[in-house]
């Protein structure tokens, strides 16, 4: 039903979303932990910066990324000097863009989960001579497990739904930057409504299943915390 270039776009989308989810688990967890525990006045500004992609139009993000990652931008000059080449029009360029774009979807659920854990279990762990790092891995993380799952699912799904930023910095290369959302757009622009319908139906079904999983599993938080 779905042709090979559509499959390629779907597979690329899955690869992009998985890569971004893994990176954000590594990057987002310490940020969320810090935000949940800190009492400094920095909490407000940093929290606001993390939340920015929620409200910024993708065109703003795409515009700045195109300028900073290009050959005349600071990031572009850095990646060039490091021998990594330039990021626009590459898979890793999309990964970097998506990490920014999906950051709040990872950090915010994690932060909420960490806050729900509270100080008490960690204090108890400390009296049992657990180091802070130990306490994090053996106490906080298991208690926040549902938060990790929610955050990962949301991050993955949100990256799949990305469109504007990819269109602006991707260059529409098959197998490299042409993700499913862009492929659908191209089908529509080329008036290939049948192909657009097929791929769009796949996306619709996927998104529904993801959200269904999330919401059917969620109303049982008593066991977790």
């Amino acid at each position: 039903m779905v042709n090979s270039s559509d499959l390629q776009a779907l597979w690329l989308t899955v690869r992009l979303a998985s890569t971004v989810t893994v990176i954000l688990l590594l990057v987002g967890t310490p940020i969320a932990w810090w935000l949940a525990r800190t009492r400094t006045w920095w909490k407000g500004p940093i929290g606001a910066v993390v939340a920015l992609p929620l409200v910024l139009p993708p065109s703003v993000l795409g515009f700045y990324l195109l300028l900073t990652m290009g050959p005349n931008g600071p990031v572009g000059q850095l990646t060039h000097a490091l021998g990594l080449g330039l990021l626009p029009f590459t898979f890793w360029g999309l990964v970097v863009a998506s990490v920014f774009y999906s950051l709040p979807f990872m950090v915010q659920p994690l932060q909420t989960a960490f806050e729900a854990v509270g100080d008490r279990p960690l204090e108890v762990a400390a009296t049992l001579r657990a180091s802070p790092l130990d306490a994090f891995f053996t106490v906080a993380m298991p208690l926040a497990a549902p938060g990790f799952l929610t955050a990962s699912i949301l991050t993955f799904a949100h990256t799949v739904g990305e469109f504007g930023v990819v269109l602006m910095i991707g260059g529409n290369l098959p197998g490299v930057t042409r993700v499913a959302s862009v492929q659908i757009y191209d089908h529509v622009e080329a008036l290939e409504y049948m192909q657009a319908h097929r791929l769009a139906a796949v996306m619709l079904l996927f998104s529904f299943l993801v959200l269904l999983a999330l919401y059917s599993w969620r109303p049982n938080p008593k066991k977790g915390a």
């Binding site: 195109l66 330039l86 029009f89």
Partner: peptide, 19 residues
């Protein structure tokens, strides 16, 4: 080759030096 969404976007990719 990289593909712009329309001709103005294509010009923008060149103007920013990305192509």
């Amino acid at each position: 080759i990289v593909y712009g969404e329309n001709i103005a976007h294509t010009a923008e990719l060149v103007q920013t030096g990305n192509a």
